[in-house]
């Protein structure tokens, strides 16, 4: 906990944006380890993947476009401090009557929470409670979450695709040196790593039922393998493998998989996202439903993250050429 505080304060003080980003990455990792201590393994997994990898990556690629140092501050903004202190005081006031930390008797653990713990295995047959709540009981929230990612992907595309006219095709690939061509060790190691990462992603994808993991984490890992490939071999090489247009369709496709599961249940006269129509035995149906839904998540997440990354580095290209 104290480390967290230290890092957060360091972020406030630092003027070098690159250092700030690194500190933020450390902060995320610390959070992830804190989540493990707090028994939230799934969340820790996600935080590590998202906070420490994806967000750092995005921030860094933005920084390479916008410059690394910020302007020194003019004076201490008292106004902000006052707002923050009032809000903080209100929060502390609120905690005074909060149920104590870690107590099992708190109302939060009595009402709905205990229902999931006691009943969910019998009803869904999924060992990982987080997965069963995520994909089944609150499947609609997860659908919403998927749409959020999809929206972000579409939004980023809409914002950054304007300079689409930058000439990719006419550039002679032999002249344009692939980034990091000289780093032979990196190239070899990453060539070995990438298949392993992809395999691991698939493992995480299908292992979500029994251990921590699931579609979201798998999607992030899958995308990070491709991102690694892009960084080592250049954007052009990556675009040769998967083009932006395909990624766009894939990310839409993932959302459609999820919703078609829902629509399937609608068509058979049950409520939206009711998995019981997918198979005869209820537990099997839940399994099938969760699996399909996780597939949808995985596909959308992976393709959207790649899409966002490609858009960002596409900007880098166009700026590099302009200079």
């Amino acid at each position: 906990m104290c480390f967290l505080l230290l890092t957060a304060f360091a972020i406030t003080r630092a003027h070098d944006l690159l250092a700030t980003v690194m500190l933020l990455s450390i902060y995320s990792l610390l959070c992830a380890s804190f989540f493990v201590v707090m028994d939230a393994v799934d969340v820790a997994f996600t935080e590590a993947a998202v906070g420490a990898v994806v967000s750092t990556l995005l921030l860094l690629s933005t920084l390479s476009l916008t410059g690394r140092f910020e302007k020194p501050q003019r004076e201490k903004p008292l106004f902000g401090l006052i707002i923050v202190l009032t809000t903080g005081a209100l929060l502390i006031y609120g905690t005074l009557q909060m149920p104590p930390f870690g107590s099992a008797a708190a109302p939060i653990h009595q009402h709905v929470g205990s229902y999931y713990i006691n009943q969910s295995y019998a009803e869904t047959g999924i060992v990982n409670l987080v997965t069963s709540v995520l994909a089944s009981y609150r499947g609609y929230d997860t659908f919403g979450e998927l749409v959020v990612i999809f929206t972000a992907g579409v939004g980023v595309l809409a914002l950054l695709s304007s300079q689409k006219s930058y000439p990719i095709a006419p550039i002679d690939k032999t002249i344009l040196p692939a980034p990091m061509k000289q780093h032979h060790i990196l190239r070899v190691v990453s060539k070995m790593l990438i298949p392993l990462i992809l395999l691991f992603a698939l493992y995480v994808q299908f292992h979500g039922h029994t251990g921590p993991g699931g579609g979201f984490q798998a999607g992030v890992i899958f995308a990070s393998a491709i991102v690694l490939y892009t960084m080592i071999f250049g954007l052009q090489a990556a675009l040769d493998v998967i083009s932006v247009a395909w990624l766009k369709l894939f990310s839409a496709f993932g959302v459609l998989i999820y919703s078609s599961v829902g629509l399937l249940s609608l068509l058979s006269g049950e409520n939206f996202l009711d998995y019981s129509v997918l198979a005869q035995a209820p537990i099997e149906a839940q399994h099938l439903g969760t699996l399909a839904v996780e597939m949808g998540i995985g596909i959308t997440v992976a393709s959207t993250i790649m899409l966002i990354f490609f858009s960002f580095s596409g900007q880098m290209h166009s700026i590099g050429e302009a200079q």
Binding site: H111, V112, Y115, Y116, S136, Y137, R138, G139, Y140, D141, S265, E270, N271, F272, L273, D274, Y275, S276
Partner: peptide, 13 residues
């Protein structure tokens, strides 16, 4: 009242 996923509230949405 419409329960999503067939789980009645407060268990579901």
């Amino acid at each position: 009242i419409y329960s999503l996923g067939g789980w009645s509230a407060p268990i579901g949405i």
